[in-house]
């Protein structure tokens, strides 16, 4: 896709031996040609391995809502719905935390599990919980595949941090007293990023703003943003990496990918939030006014090279730990050759970004603290 230019976007669909497309096994990739092709293949693999085809009802355990709401997930925005309205247990997988196993409800990471037509799947798992409200908070964020478990965990943590940073930007801009975003001066971009920025502008046909949205977690996070018009919603791409240059590359290439992918990817409609004007503003994600008051900042210089995945994973976990956040991890599948699919939850980090796809969700405690003002967020 994208007419052969670089950065490129590729789409991948996996088929079974019978030639029939495998369930959920589609993905998109971005970046240089080989990088985009590999990315599309790995994303398709991720969606297949974490999707309904490999769901094992025997691998989940029923856990009462009150127990979940009293555990580490009490800091999740969805905990407000575990208030006893439905006492039926929820199907949970066991995740590994520093203190041992922690049950995490499947709905958090598996939208396919809460779809209206998935009643039989839930029945097989012995799950009679009412997911009418909780399905709004369901999202596959934090899932990743890597050539090793370490690489998969690094991708999953970076994605979780990226989504949290985007969520905090939304909260501050539209539920707080305003946000002065930091916009990178495009004249300060290194040559490869300057080229990617120019291509993103050509592909979107609009000004591309590269925002530094790094949060208190101090893992560089970039957002490539195109404001909405009366004819179409906003466009965006985001990236997180210990290397600011790699974070910016991922953001700009994701913007290219999502723009050329618009004809095959279905987007949620934020206008469905019209009954709740404050949340509709979040969903529309129109930063036009905020950008007029933006700070222009030079592109941040890369410090020491991030190093091997193992070292990066240790560093990212340390930065989370410094703010009081602890990842919970689950190995979803391991293929011959060590390719590994994982899912990561970091209790307390925000997933409010679901609102831009038309999901009716609220921020959790961290988002609410961010809305109160520009002061440093409290530690978890």
């Amino acid at each position: 896709m994208g007419e052969g230019r670089e950065p490129a976007a590729w789409h991948c669909r996996l088929r079974g031996p019978d030639g029939v497309p495998a369930p959920s096994a589609e993905g998109m990739g971005k970046g240089r040609r080989a990088e985009a092709r590999a990315g599309a293949l790995f994303e398709a693999l991720e969606h297949y391995l974490t999707g309904p085809a490999l769901f094992d009802p025997a691998a989940v355990e029923p856990v009462e809502p009150a127990r979940i709401a009293a555990g580490p997930l009490r800091a999740d925005a969805s905990a407000v719905l575990l208030d006893g309205r439905c006492a039926a247990p929820l199907a949970c997988h066991r995740y590994q935390g520093p203190g041992g196993a922690v049950p995490v409800p499947l709905f958090l990471s598996a939208p396919w599990y809460v779809e209206a037509d998935a009643a039989r799947l839930r029945e097989r798992a012995g799950d009679a919980h009412d997911y009418t409200g909780l399905m709004r908070y369901s999202c596959n964020s934090g899932s990743a595949v890597g050539v090793t478990a370490t690489e998969a965990l690094l991708h999953a943590l970076n994605e979780t941090i990226e989504r949290d940073a985007l969520s905090l930007l939304l909260v501050r801009a539209f539920l707080g007293t305003g946000e002065r975003p930091s916009v990178v001066d495009p004249r300060t971009l290194p040559p490869e990023l300057a080229r990617a920025h120019a291509v993103a502008g050509q592909v979107t046909g609009a000004p591309v703003h590269l925002l530094d949205i790094t949060s208190d977690l101090m893992v560089p996070t970039m957002l490539a943003y195109v404001a909405p018009t009366p004819d179409r919603p906003h466009r965006r791409g985001a990236g997180t990496s210990l290397s600011p240059a790699h974070a910016a590359w991922r953001a700009l290439t994701e913007l290219v990918q999502t723009t050329v992918g618009e004809r095959i990817q279905r987007r949620g409609d934020a206008e469905r939030l019209a009954r709740y004007p404050e949340l509709l503003a979040c969903g529309r994600f129109d930063l036009t006014e905020h950008l007029r008051a933006a700070r222009t900042v030079p592109f941040p210089e890369d410090g020491a090279r991030p190093g091997r995945p193992r070292d990066q994973l240790r560093e990212v976990a340390a930065r989370l730990g410094a703010r009081g956040y602890t990842p919970l991890t689950r190995t979803v599948a391991v293929l011959p050759g060590r390719i590994t699919a994982v899912h990561v939850v970091v209790p307390g980090l925000e997933r409010f970004m679901l609102v831009v796809e038309g999901n009716l969700v609220l921020p959790g405690p961290r988002g609410r603290a961010a809305a109160r003002g520009p002061a440093d967020l409290p530690r978890a």
Partner: peptide, 23 residues
């Protein structure tokens, strides 16, 4: 989609806090 009563209360608190801070 509809917010529950508990969520509506939370949204009300968020917007009231914003209005107080803006004032």
């Amino acid at each position: 989609q509809e917010l529950t009563e508990a969520e509506r209360e939370r949204l009300r608190e968020i917007t009231e806090e914003r209005d107080e801070n803006a004032g």
